[in-house]
Design a protein around this nucleic acid. Structure first.
Lengths: 339, 339
DNA sequence: GTCTGGCACTCCAGGTGTGCGAGTGCCAGC
DNA sequence: GCTGGCACTCGCACACCTGGAGTGCCAGAC
């Protein structure tokens, strides 16, 4: 078990290292924080912390830097979430309030988050499976060509063009549209498949039945395809603040960011709407081994419809970052609820 | 006037420098290209080229590198566009053919272009102003709440929620929908404003007129707002291949890329659908002073609806890049025409 | 007039060497 | 259990040096 003071030393090391980006030594520590003990004592504590794996020294005669395990302890036990100041909160709200549609909300959120945290921001679009259907529209583009438009309660819109096996009358189309909407409007996307299962049987003409089946299968396909979520990324220029060693450091991170699948998986793993911090090697993907990811769910109601967060160096200001992420998520949720 | 051989020397310098990323000297030049003259002669030619400002030496005792002006001459007079090979063309087509909707087409195009050129790819979404209206849909979300959905011939969809001053009957809504579509379907977005100008007068009830006016003003607003085009960027990881000096080099480029406005302006300046190359300082934006931008318009018919291109170091393989950009634009055009 | 070989000069890149300073671990004493 | 002292380690920055690539210029050949 670590004594109270040793934890205090660890906290001081993390704070100093995050601030200066340089290994911190015993003397500098006692000068910047009044721990009430001498450097020699701190050295003993540091040796103990190193034995336990919370800190490490890059080379024999250098100061210490926190390990992933050290950051983990810091985040879990030693640091809180730093709340945003009132002016910051106002700025967030003002900035997000100007958004005109969903794309714009997401784009603004990314910019905002990148600016607040000075790191790379990631925002997932509201997922279809957790949203509810606002409306399904069918448009006749040509006698045997229909456009399917899906509109969600979060403002997301998906559309597909369908080639029908045989021409489909305007009346039948209107009929199908009405039936579809009465069944699925207001329901969750996840429930749609079973709700429309028996729709073709409601039509008498065999040709119509075939067409209806085609339309439905496209609808279901869309649901499945779009379950692969989309996301928007911004603030990559902040990566250049990392360290001065880069191309090596920055390269794999940029690559990982382009592989959106990796990020989506990462976001998906996190517990539903809870704030989650993944540190360094806790992240399975190799390119992100020297980064940390702070994420949280956001949504219009109590439930999360998607996640957002930031990617930064393990050496980041965790309390501040967590505060910004939480605040932004909260306001985005409000905006979505209003629209 | 530069003699034929001197131009040949410039071409050789550009090619070697692009290949090796190192200043090229007179001896190496004569060894790699059989110019039929000795290094001493080449030195004289190089001195002349330097006097004219086509090449420069980084330090006194180093080889020469092309200047922006040198690349310009190379692109305009000395190099053609390198056509894609048949397998490459097939790969492009296969890759793009799998796209399910407009977002997907754009996303795939970005990936493809980044991969082919190993540089940063930029694809502009088809612009609204140059597209034609496929359909306008109005949905009653609530008695006094209407959703407006705009669908273009390029597959792009825009939607807005409108709060009406007074409740609007389903019959009036259907009426408006029909009138709107009969006027604007198949027309260019740019022409919409004047086409709908007198629509409110077609309605008798004063309340309806007010509502119609509200809907129309939202419609026109959408057109204006969306004239600010959107674009998608990819392949930023390729920036790390630039040189080994970076953070300094890469930083401003990443920042410029996030400022989409800059890129949009740049793309907008280029002549309509023609292939355009901007080199180094020809680009007004400071962050992009050491990059070149190759862009071209693409579209479903003969006319360009938007642009796409790549951003890379001035030291890039121009013929190859231009070939890839042109080929991709061509196939994207085809895909859009089919959908 | 144009090209060529020779020559002296310049200057960067990379390797080596050294001194300084920060930091450590350990130990004896309070 | 804390402290001050001390010897030790080691990376970093700086200076220095040398090799090599490249240049400009000039006199001579074609």
């Amino acid at each position: 078990m670590l004594s109270e003071r040793r934890l205090e030393v660890l906290r001081a090391i993390v704070q100093d290292y995050v601030g200066t980006e340089e290994p911190v030594g015993s003397k500098a520590l006692t000068e910047r924080h009044n721990l009430g003990v001498s450097p020699a004592t701190v050295r003993n504590d540091m040796a103990a912390l190193e034995d336990e794996g919370f800190i490490a020294q890059p080379h024999t005669s250098a100061g210490r830097i926190p390990t992933d395990k050290g950051y983990r302890l810091f985040v879990d036990k030693l640091a809180g979430v730093k709340p945003m100041t009132a002016p910051e909160r106002r700025a967030i709200q003002n900035f997000l309030d100007g958004a005109v549609d969903l794309d714009d909300v997401v784009a603004r959120t990314v910019r905002l988050l990148a600016q607040l945290t000075r790191q790379v921001a990631v925002v997932q679009y509201p997922s279809l499976t957790r949203s509810t259907v606002r409306h399904v529209e069918l448009l006749a583009l040509a006698p045997a060509r229909v456009m399917l438009v899906l509109i969600t309660d979060t403002g997301r819109v998906e559309q597909r063009v369908i080639d029908c096996p045989v021409p489909f009358g305007e009346a039948s189309l209107a009929d199908l549209r009405a039936r579809l909407n009465s069944r699925v409007a207001g329901r969750r996307f996840a429930d749609v498949p079973q709700l429309v299962q028996d729709l073709p049987e409601a039509f008498e003409e065999p040709e119509d039945r075939a067409t209806v089946a085609t339309v439905l299968s496209t609808l279901l396909e869309t649901l499945v395809e779009e379950t692969e979520e989309r996301l928007m990324i911004g603030g990559t220029a902040n990566l250049t603040r990392f360290g001065h060693d880069f191309p090596l450091t920055i390269r794999p991170v940029l690559e990982a960011l382009e592989e959106q699948v990796v990020l989506l998986k990462l976001l998906g793993e996190a517990k539903d709407s809870a704030m989650t911090v993944r540190i360094g090697h806790e992240i399975a993907h190799e390119g992100l081994n020297s980064t940390s990811v702070v994420s949280v769910g956001y949504g219009s109601g109590g439930e999360a419809v998607a996640k957002l967060g930031v990617v930064g160096p393990t050496r980041m200001d965790y309390p501040g970052t967590m505060g910004a992420v939480r605040a932004v998520a909260r306001y985005v949720g409000q905006i979505l609820a209003e629209s």
